[in-house]
Design a protein around this nucleic acid. Sequence first.
DNA 1: AAGGCGGGGCG
DNA 2: CGCCCAGCCTT
Length: 365
Amino acid sequence: MQSTNHHPFTKGLLSWYRQHARALPWRQTQDPYAIWLSEVVLQQTRVAQGLPYYLKLLEVFPTVESLAQAEESVLFRHWQGLGYYSRARNLHKTAKLVVSDYHGKFPATYNDLIQLPGVGPYTAAAIASFAFGEAKPVVDGNVFRILARYFGIETDILHSSARKEFTDVAMELIPQDQPAEFNQAIMDFGSLQCSPAPLCASCPLSLTCFAFQQKRIQDFPVKQKKAKQKNRYFNYFILEQGGQVLVRERKERDIWSGLWEFYLVESAQEEELESLVEMDDNLSTMFSNATVQFLKSPKLHILSHQKIYCRAWHVQVPDNLDISNLAGFQWIQPEDFEKLGKSVLLLNLITDNLHLKIFNDSMPR
DNA sequence: AAGGCGGGGCG
DNA sequence: CGCCCAGCCTT
């Protein structure tokens, strides 16, 4: 029995592991070469996907010497289909380096291991603990997720400071006398129990888990959404009739909701004026007899998550054309439009076109 | 500090 | 289709 001064998390985790440990081949060895090989294969790779590659690689290259002597092309052929091919290149580099600089014996400490090509904080901790019993916690996606949930850590795991913070927490939890068991356990726990879609109903740690107790499992780990900068193409038409302009309030669930703007046609890509008019029924009607002028405008407007390519036209609509009932739009005096909230993009557009009579009569500045 | 690198499984 | 996986390296 272990001493009872372990954190409740650690006790519960190790207890769970005694009943649920997966029998994985790289756990049947203490050979740092085999362990290193498995860890590199498993970087960003599911066990089920990496397992056959590991077995085959160990069969073809049973020792670090055999790997070091192999042609890189042979290694690549065996790596093919596994992805992240720089792993194979670094694998070969490290094998040759271990043979040439370390007499074929892997360095035995975290600090030396992490110097090897393709060996980062996670892999160094894994080898150090599994092969040499050094008490360094592994901190991978599983550990981020588990600790964030259990302790309610709000730190964005994509932030540069996150690794240190989570490593510090894990360092407090890892038992000095059985670091390998702890590290294996926390990864099985992350894979089988506290997975991205966790099985809280059967979890022995749920009673002391912050996220579960607060019913906030969905909130952890905190991970900033990738702001996939989308390209958008805004085509503004400043429609004028009898000294008034056609405007509307943006109300949809989108940028600038609540602000006012001119007639907008958004397209999926850059379009010619003719295509835009053709695509838009209202424009088709109004353009039948109108005077159109291409306007200077901000070409590009950048938001945190969107790049907006902008073009604009001024359209003088004939007075005799009745287009009063456009849903959501209204004709307005320019001096009244001036008082309404507008996006910076639109303000810039106006500033660029103060020569238009409707603007220089009404807009201050 | 941010981006790139792969293929596959899952909801 | 987006997210995630036993991360690491480069810029």
